[in-house]
Nucleic acid binder design. Sequence first.
RNA 1: GCGCUUGUGGUGGAAUUGGUAGACACGCCAGACUUAGGAUCUGGUGCCGAGAGGCGUGUAAGUUCGAGUCUUAUCAGGCGUACCA
Length: 942
Amino acid sequence: MAKEYNFREIEQKWHRLWVERQTYKVTEDEHREKFYVLNMFPYPSGAGLHVGHPLGYIASDIYARYKRLQGFNVLNPMGYDAYGLPAEQYAIKTGQHPEKTTFANIDRYREQLDKIGFSFDWDREVRTCTPDYYHWTQWAFQKMFNSYFDEELQKAQPIEKLIEKFKQEGTWPADEKAQSDLLMNYRIAFLGETMVNWCPKLGTVLANDEVVEGVSVRGGYPVEQKKMRQWCLRVSAYSQRLLDGLDTIDWSESIKETQRNWIGRSEGAEIEIPYTLSKDGDEAGSFTIFTTRADTMFGVTFFVLAPESELVDKVTTPDQRAAVDEYLKYVKSRTERERMIDHTVTGVFSGAYGINPITGDKCPIYIAEYVLAGYGTGAIMAVPAHDSRDYAFAKHFDLPIIPLVEGADISEESYDAKEGIVCNSPITPDKSVEYDGERLCLNGLTIKEAIAETKRFVKAHNLGRVKVNYRLRDAIFSRQRYWGEPFPVYYKKGIPTMIPEECLPIELPQVEKFLPTETGEPPLGNAQIWAWDEKNRKIVDKKLIDEAAGIYPIELYTMPGFAGSSAYYLRYMDPHNDQALVSDRAASYWQNVDLYVGGSEHATGHLIYSRFWNKFLFDLGVSKKEEPFKKLVNQGMIQGRSNFVYRIKETNTFVSLGLKDKYDVTPIHVDVNIVKNDILDLEAFKAWSPEYATADFVLEDGKYICGWAIEKMSKSMYNVVNPDMIVENYGADTLRLYEMFLGPVEQSKPWDTNGIDGCFRFLKKLWALYWDKDGNLALTDDEPSADSLKTLHKLIKKVTGDIEAFSYNTSISAFMVAVNELSQQKCSSRTVLQTLPVLIAPFAPHIAEELWEALGGEGSVCDAKWPQYEEKYLVETSVKLGVQFNGKVRFDMLFPADATPEQMIEIATSAPEAAKHLEGMDIVKTIAIPKRIVNIVVKPKA
RNA sequence: GCGCUUGUGGUGGAAUUGGUAGACACGCCAGACUUAGGAUCUGGUGCCGAGAGGCGUGUAAGUUCGAGUCUUAUCAGGCGUACCA
């Protein structure tokens, strides 16, 4: 009896030995080159892992193991993003403390992960919800509070420097409250009165990336705009650095592009517009507009303010007051969502007129919701001829439209393109205002030139300034929730004050109820022991709050999800350090993440916040690299493949896919776990639900064939495939191979169990290479044959190249080919067969360890040396070449491997096969492609 | 609307980067061994055609001796984003 591939026994054995031997423990070692591999850590949800989750982990584990075999000191940690809404909502429903459910979920995750055989160093595990971890989240927040962004140096600086500057300038106020308010305008973490996305259903504010199409990402509840005092992070200060950094990192172009759009840099000009409160009135003030099309100043026919702008009140004339108020009321009644979907033109005349500084024209000022308060200055100059939104507005309110580009047809729509020659600017020479003897004239210039010329003019005559605007907004950093990091902040006479650094962490207090209080305070309002005793430096009962005694209320907000996930990669470097986020030694050694693997859905969330957070810590000298993630690979999503059975209406009879059109049927989702290769397991189906216990079937060829569809993997579609079942039936090595064999890592693809047998068969074949009929090792010390050496070295070359390129599916194909070849060659050479376990170790570590041990290898296969291929085994003795003539004739012939292109042409043209084609022809030219083909182009003799 | 991205057999997907399209796997067909097979092994399998042969990488044109690969146009799907002036 040949020795069986008993994956259960092998995998259990090695899971045990890896733990006993601490195979995956890593320590800093300055004598070895480091390599840092990281996965985006998971949020441990109650549903456990499905087959989609491990995809990225397997991909990065393969790379980590490969790098280790190449001699690198590889850091490959794992942890949990443990704060989150689902645990809190579950707590609200059941009263169970979120920590309890979160930890239970973590245990379940860990159990599932362990079965797959990852090379994680679990000693470095982090959980964002434990005090020893969020200590450093709070610490970073305090550092941000005590820093400002120096525009000149383009980096964070201690706030003391700024205070010093104010003192020197004599602008430092004496009053403490005034000092606090002043500094709030500069601190990187600051309290700001801002428009926030308020989600009433969730009872909390949300960041911009947590809102999609006007509803919350979590739960899909409506979101409205509300002005609130919130903690914010001055992410926008880093806009330019966040943009520039993208050019230095190896990320996919699409993610970089998404981030560039999100940052939204636009170069333009701010121009001062004086206004009057009646057509012939005197100047009553001025406002500033922002434009990227300064060249269109001559086409301005009206101005527009955002309804939320503070200017609205100032420019509204008594006549128009009622109309404006009514319009503002209407705007306020609309939700974010309505405003987003419905783009009908609305607006109201304010009664005031803006004076175009270039033409001197007076144009009406409107108020309209199509202008956004949050971008630029909240005020625009409208050029209906060359902006589609202004055009629609002008048509609706019957305002003039002045074309400014030669040949542009604006009868039906505006001409928005930035191409063409400018005209009508000005229409007549006197139609422009003279400044210091100069008048602006753009006629005849290209649009690009005109923009530059206008900017110059505006700047030279002090009509405004050149300005770069960013779409990126400051991140709102507080949440009205329980299950998050508490702020280490108390309010001393209304002034936000930091709890001393030495007293951190401030632990999340216990509460009875996780809902907001009856008075509308956030859930932390339910905490009893939640006041700061300044003298004794400790947290006390809030009943004791007494300003005279130095006992103050503590902040009730908590931090958002991205707080804990923004710098976790630094913590993995030194997870047990209670003196610092990360020691200087560890940070200097590990530097930054060499390979980061995770989903592309974090492009505008985590991946921006993390880069921001790291840049801040870099400015502090804590992080050693400006960019946290050198290379990013976005693994695709695994979709579900649902199966259907077809029930004949009003019966309990099910008809197979091929015959269903003959009946009137209802498709019903059936659990994919009782379907194999689209064939339904009838007994399992009957047992699946009592309803089907007495089901009848109409079969084809004796089988019940199910229909299928690609859908999201979800419980309700019965298409969730759990990795545990695959591991149970085929083993972890097969699961790992199959997930990679499914297709390129970056690509989204449906989970389809149909092909898994191929990978399982491959492992069995690999296993079979090593054992004879009696179950003994079938190895010889004979010289390996040339064929088997060629097979081996071809494989080494292919696999090495493919791993580097993350092309795991093709390297697995190469393994399959190689094992088939070696099996056919009846290869039993120790030299060859000893190398295979090392090569397969990154993909299928369990079988690799077992074979390595059986062959008498030293220690773990993880510490073996990755083999080098040698060209000499790959050289062909002769090369097959085709000769191709003009037209379609062609034949194959053999050339010596070392033939030069000239010799190849010589041989080809003088070959007997060629003679009949060359008869009566002139050779126009000949081309030889090395090792491939000789082309001879001919034409009939003249 | 804008930005990015992908279109190759019945299916998942290969293609040394401009050089024999369809590797490898699933599925299917035939055969072998079996009491049996959803086990194992062998062979076949892009399409049309009995055959010789012809046609084939979403569609149409172009560059080239040669195009799945490059260029242009066009169609279709996916992702992101959205009144950003």
